[in-house]
Design a binder for these strands. Sequence first.
DNA 1: CCCCACATGTAATCCGTTACATGATTAT
DNA 2: ATAATCATGTAACGGATTACATGTGGGG
Lengths: 189, 189
Amino acid sequence: MSLPHAILTALLEKPSSGLELTRRFDRSIGYFWSASHQQIYRELGKLEAEGYIRALPAEQPARGQKKSYEVLPAGRAELTRWTAASQDPKPLRDPLLLRLRAAAVVGTAGIEADLRHHLHLHRRQLAEYEEIQQRDFPPGSHTPQNRLQHLILRAGIDLETFWTRWLMDALEEFERLPAQDPPSRDSTV
Amino acid sequence: MSLPHAILTALLEKPSSGLELTRRFDRSIGYFWSASHQQIYRELGKLEAEGYIRALPAEQPARGQKKSYEVLPAGRAELTRWTAASQDPKPLRDPLLLRLRAAAVVGTAGIEADLRHHLHLHRRQLAEYEEIQQRDFPPGSHTPQNRLQHLILRAGIDLETFWTRWLMDALEEFERLPAQDPPSRDSTV
DNA sequence: CCCCACATGTAATCCGTTACATGATTAT
DNA sequence: ATAATCATGTAACGGATTACATGTGGGG
């Protein structure tokens, strides 16, 4: 149940139309909560029906016309409630680690190239975060709001740093590994 | 599309019944790909229908009776194919970071206790991983298979280490923060 | 005999993804 | 006029979660 609250947060920061939200979910907020435009439009409809947001009164009927939304008091209250409520962290779910585990059983053929690909993408993301850090959080800029935002960004930076290092480790391990492909302790195949 | 492959991997390691798989998904494999028993039973049905696995012939008809499965050659082939195929990493999705961002808008009241709770859980998970490391990967035990498994475990350890550190950082930040709750630059509420 | 744990499932709902549809505006 | 682009949606599907249902076997 996070998407509606992500949208409420974005709309509080700045009232927007569906497409503008979609754009913003490709940057800032999307760095840790992505969403497609279909999800966003559907959710905007629900939020409006529940009385959490409303369309800005600019008299646009329907399709093809821009339609901006703003948060109503009930929406802000709901977001406040959700922010303060306790939630358990979800267990980790990572396809790449799963694939490595599978590779330990059926052989590592082909996986190395993909590790390189992942490494490339994580490096790029890390560079993007570091650019943002230099631009938006120069040393000595700390209002309370800034501190929180910077804390969030640092999580992103540290996570990408972890993945980058771990993937380099993994690739090193693979180079040292005998290139044998299927361990095949199971010879029935 | 990872669950069926997680199940195939688990069944290759050891033929099992649905409940046994559920148990194993609460430990080892579940550390990076969790699944409920409902998901597992449904998926076992599909995998059997597709000819990837079969029930071990022990003549059990239906409900209440144990029913074990083993992987067929087609299943192993499919797992091999999937392991080698390239996949893009999914963008990060983390409700806690989202909540912090929301807190920067509607106030940080109540969130600190939950950060402590998360910290506790991550510390516990880290301790569990480290125990496994000492038990299963003592220094000097490196068959190729072991190296891969250890690599995967190290990812878990490093991730939990990251979260533990980051949460301690965050809590420190909160203590330094003025205890004001709603920044409320928006006074229309 | 009854209850509980073991074991296997079904049903309803929600969320996310993919593909497609439609209207309005602007440039050529 | 027409094509491209902006903008808002619909429909269909599949995976995950939650709640519930059903049957077996053993201990008290």
